[in-house]
Design a protein around this nucleic acid. Structure first.
Length: 199
DNA sequence: ATGATGATTAACT
DNA sequence: GTTAATCATCATG
């Protein structure tokens, strides 16, 4: 392990995740995801999230547990990763309490470290096109189905503490790309941040 | 067994 | 703004 980002942070404790999902989604803004792999270290700051909660028809856990969503019903602080549109993976953090089935979708990161690795994985050069979307950041960070259910307090994929910068404001809006419960204000992002997936 | 759908992205017009 | 790419998952029969 190496890199200033990794050495300067602290790993978020499980208690951070074991709270109301919308709160976790909001508080995840500014936190840092670190991915260790054979290619080196990659890290990014979370700038956009969405909450998926109980009683929410847009939530993958809405109709109960299936082989696909079983990680959502596991302990908080673990990864729920799913495949969609026949070509993309998305990364979520399990929240609330075990057995409930709630999670936070991480929609965008501000790249901090390992920009070269990210560019290589993405096949794109522009910094703003590396992690500005749920499918993009998963690709840039080298996150795959092998990390399904992974404990995010452990390597090789961890989330470290971090705070909003002075003057950085949190915006709340409707979630992106869903048809059910499309009006709920469960999307959180940093206003005016260039790495957010959509304005 | 079959069919509709999707927490997306990139490439067009 | 529109659309093709591309397929696992899930509900239905």
């Amino acid at each position: 392990m190496s890199g200033f980002v990794y050495d300067s942070g602290f790993i978020l404790p499980r208690e951070f995740y074991g709270r109301e999902t919308a709160l976790v989604a909001r508080d995840l803004l500014g936190k840092i995801i670190v991915r260790l792999s054979g290619n080196g270290i990659a890290a990014g700051r979370i700038v956009e999230t969405e909450a998926y909660v109980r009683g929410d028809p847009a939530c993958h856990a809405f109709r109960g547990m299936t082989p696909r969503n079983r990680a959502m019903f596991g302990p908080p602080g673990h990864a729920y990763i799913y495949f969609t549109y026949g070509m993309h993976y998305c990364f979520n953090v399990v929240t609330a309490e075990e057995g409930v089935g709630e999670a936070v979708l991480v929609r965008a990161l501000e790249p901090l470290e390992g920009l070269c690795i990210m560019s290589k994985r993405r096949g794109r050069e522009k910094n703003t096109d590396l992690c500005s979307g749920p499918g993009k950041l998963v690709q840039a960070m080298g996150i795959g189905p092998d990390l399904y259910g992974h404990d995010l307090t452990c390597e090789p994929l961890v989330i470290l503490g971090g705070e909003p910068r002075p003057g950085e404001a949190v915006a709340v809006a409707a979630r992106v790309g869903i048809s059910a419960a499309a009006d709920l204000p469960l999307r959180f992002y940093f206003k005016n941040n260039r790495y957010v997936s959509k304005k």
